[in-house]
């Protein structure tokens, strides 16, 4: 996963918009969600090209999200799960798997 997005190919466009670090940290979620308006997204890309600490901040946010994906979450007890599988097999299991 690349941490620095590409610069827009047309940097001569409407580039009045500038993002400071203080602003970037509040835009990082929308940047990751892909929901920023185009001009803001362009300004964010430009900022990230120039700002190592904000690239680091972005990477830390991504690392946090990745780590959240590994936090253990409770699931059904094995006995309950097995009971469900048995009910399922009793109701649907009579048919052969190939005929779908």
């Amino acid at each position: 996963m690349r941490s620095v997005p590409e610069l827009p190919s047309d940097p001569s466009g409407d580039s009045a918009l500038v993002v400071a670090c203080r602003e970037f940290v509040e835009l990082v979620t929308e940047h990751l969600e892909g929901t920023l308006p185009d001009d803001v997204e362009r300004a964010v890309h430009t900022h990230l090209e120039l700002c190592g600490p904000c690239v680091e901040f972005l990477e830390q946010t991504r690392a946090t999200v990745r780590l959240l994906g590994t936090v253990p979450a409770p699931t059904l007890p094995p006995a309950a799960r097995d009971r469900l599988l048995d009910v399922y097999t009793r109701l649907h299991g009579g048919r052969s798997a190939g005929e779908a």
Binding site: T75, L76, R81, L85, G93, S96
Partner: peptide
Amino acid sequence: RAGDRTAFADLVDGWSPALL
């Protein structure tokens, strides 16, 4: 629908934490 127990088990295992 064809009674594929493994498919159902995967579904139960995959979605039960979020459902809980």
